[in-house]
Amino acid sequence: MSALRLIARDLRLAWTGGGLWLPILFFLAVAILYPFAVGPDAKLLRATGGAMLWIAALLAALLPIERLIRPDWESGFLDQLAVRGWADEAVAALKIAAHWLSFGPPLLLATLVGAALFDLDGDMAGTLLGGLAIATPALAALSVTIAALTARAGGGAAGLMLLPLAIPVLIFGAGSLGPNSVGAMPLLAAVSLGLTVLAPFAAGAAMRALRD
């Protein structure tokens, strides 16, 4: 019950802080701007649009990274949970769940719009949507972990830290859209599962280190 209360609180904060709209607007802005950058070649857009949406999704997950851990550390919120006996790993896992709920489902809806903008066919749009549904928990897990690791130093380094860690997700995710993509989706699922399972431990350790 207390766990649900924590998730609900994080969701409320995300939504009142623009967490619901910001990633979607960012995601759609990329989808709208991309054709201006590469030109109106429909074939090219169809061929590269899916991969572009993957990059946009990855960056959208990063957008709220500054408010994922740092405000709760600075305000003493994390300490209050620790005093009550909450394991840092459990708090990290709940924060990952809340972050995913705040940006994952809205992003999947926005993907439908992005797929329409790039005129992706039904199969590819389905693969893109399936891949993002599998990968967004991993993106949320990475974001929370990096937010915990960079809480003291500030978010400047966050983007640089996320990108290499997210490369496997991007390779298998965007790779699943290509013509020779057999096996990409199971590998994406494996990578996503691994990251999502390991992240609470890494983020929990980083949160513990913040107390010193």
Binding site: R9, L13, T16, E74, S75, G76, F77, D79, Q80, A82, V83, R211, D212
Partner: peptide, 29 residues
């Protein structure tokens, strides 16, 4: 409160603890 570890010595705390320090830990809105 169990938030920091001592460098030496021992501490025994019997019961549930609450801490009110200089930080408010209350959401602003």
């Amino acid at each position: 409160a169990g938030l920091l570890r001592p460098a030496a010595g021992s501490i025994m705390v019997e019961g549930r603890v609450a801490l009110a320090d200089e930080r408010r830990a209350l959401d602003p809105l």
